[in-house]
Nucleic acid binder design. Structure first.
Length: 428
DNA sequence: TCTGGGGTCCTAGGACCC
DNA sequence: TCTGGGGTCCTAGGACCC
């Protein structure tokens, strides 16, 4: 229930679409929120593209085929765990008991958009939350028992992707419901229609959206083990100890809407046109450890080129950049160093970024360290049309801009390695 | 000697999410 | 031997201003 405003009779007539109720001298508008969660999304996408993989134990690997990021039900049944290193299941892959796929993120993004499109047929309020999840808002008079199977069928026919759907009065409750839905027949769960208090008392508090590892440990120390116990804890104490975020989660568990649909907490970057993206990061683990400055420089140059290409594709410029190098947290000495730099003028020109990186890298580098990963990030993103041209425009600037646009074009058409700079060959 | 009470903006780091 | 990549939000503390 969403406490919006004092409801006058005139407003009430306009809001007939929603169910309203009166409680403790306040009017509430009842909304119903659904969270649609694609089942084993990356694997399901691979099965759409390669139907012969259906009903088989299949997993999708991360970049470098390092760890497992998606599993089919058959693979789960064989004991393959989410996020685990691939080498731990070497025997399963070598004997052909489990099929492993390298990831194709552009395929996943394409199908993700199709899923969102299918959902838009049911409500104007669809908020993509992650690559495989969307929130959808309905009016209080809509029936979950009708909408659930309808949406599930529509997504399946239009995209081939099976989904689980959870309904609740708030995003937090809908999220919990969708977790439960995975184990329900039909993959649909309506927490609004259940005896909510009893269900919440059976759910471990760490399963609540926004309660992570640190908070869970802290809550346990204070004897709060379940979602129900968290909901019933003293609100002032929660607000004081956990901040504004904790207070919101608690209120949402009580059915009071704090995270409206449409205002995204987090939005996948490829939906950036729907909500301005604020930062952009590109990072990669190395196939082998790197121990020299030239090696790191080559890796960072790759990071920078990819990140700048992303910026230009999105017609964005960055006000600030940063880069980092780190060792592996599985090695004996974990170490991470980063440096940020504010541009005199927002840019997406990789040559400028490269210059900054090359000049600063030697001061970050520590000899004797075995580096495992590098990355570059951009903050303060603004549309490139909004970049204020400096009074003293570098005449080279315009030429470089044109050249980069041409390079982007060629790489898009003939592949990333089709054209490279002579200078990038010498830096290895 | 005694030394107010706001406000804003920025940044680094923590926590969490998928 | 081998362990992903990409995001957001909130808070505390410092600088600065009147």
């Amino acid at each position: 229930m969403l406490k919006l405003f004092t409801v006058t009779p005139a407003r009430l007539r306009r809001l007939k679409f929603f169910k309203t109720r009166h409680h403790a001298n306040k009017w509430y508008i009842e909304a119903m929120i659904a969270l649609i969660d694609c089942n084993s999304f990356f694997v399901s996408c691979e099965q759409v593209a390669h139907p012969e993989l259906k009903n088989k134990p299949v997993v999708v690997f991360s970049n470098n085929n390092g760890c497992i990021i998606s599993r089919s039900n058959e693979a789960k049944a064989l004991g393959v765990k989410m996020g685990e290193a691939v080498f731990k299941y070497k025997h399963l892959f070598e004997t052909g008991k489990v099929i492993g796929c390298s990831p194709s993120f552009s395929l996943y993004q394409k199908i993700s958009k199709q899923v969102v499109q299918a959902l838009r047929g049911f409500s104007p309020w669809v908020e993509p939350y992650s690559i495989d999840e969307s929130f959808v808002r309905f009016g209080g008079t809509d029936q979950a028992s009708v909408l659930g199977p309808g949406m599930r069928q529509a997504v399946l026919t239009q995209t081939g992707i099976p989904v689980s759907i959870g309904f609740g009065a708030t995003k937090t409750l809908a999220k919990l419901a969708s977790d439960k839905a995975k184990a329900m027949p039909g993959n649909i769960m309506d927490l609004g229609s259940y005896a909510l208090s009893r269900v919440l008392n059976t759910i471990p508090v760490e399963e609540v959206w926004g309660i992570g590892y640190r908070t869970t440990r802290w809550l346990h120390r204070h004897g709060i083990e379940t979602a129900g116990a968290f909901r019933d804890a003293d609100p002032h104490w929660i607000r004081k100890k956990m901040g504004i975020g904790g207070g919101r989660i608690q209120r949402e568990l009580n059915g009071q809407l704090c995270f409206p649909v449409g205002i995204s907490v987090q939005m996948p970057s490829f939906y950036a046109q729907e909500a301005a993206q604020k930062s952009l990061l590109h990072s990669r683990s190395f196939p082998e450890r790197i121990t020299s400055i030239p090696g790191l420089q080559t890796a960072l140059a790759e990071n920078i080129k990819s990140a700048c290409a992303k910026l230009r594709r999105a017609n964005l410029c960055a006000s600030e950049m940063g880069f980092f190098i780190k060792t592996s947290r599985f090695d004996s000495h974990y170490d991470s160093d980063a440096w940020t730099y504010r541009f005199p003028q927002a840019t997406n020109n990789e040559n400028e970024v490269l210059r900054v990186m090359k000049s600063k890298l030697p001061t970050l580098f520590k000899s004797g360290y075995r580096y495992a990963k590098s990355g570059v990030y951009f903050n303060g993103l603004i549309p490139d049309s909004a970049v204020q041209l400096s009074f003293f425009v570098n005449p080279r600037e315009e030429k470089e801009r044109a050249l980069l646009g041409t390079l982007d074009h060629i790489r898009q058409r003939w592949g990333r390695q089709s054209i490279i700079r002579g200078s990038s060959l010498t830096s290895v």
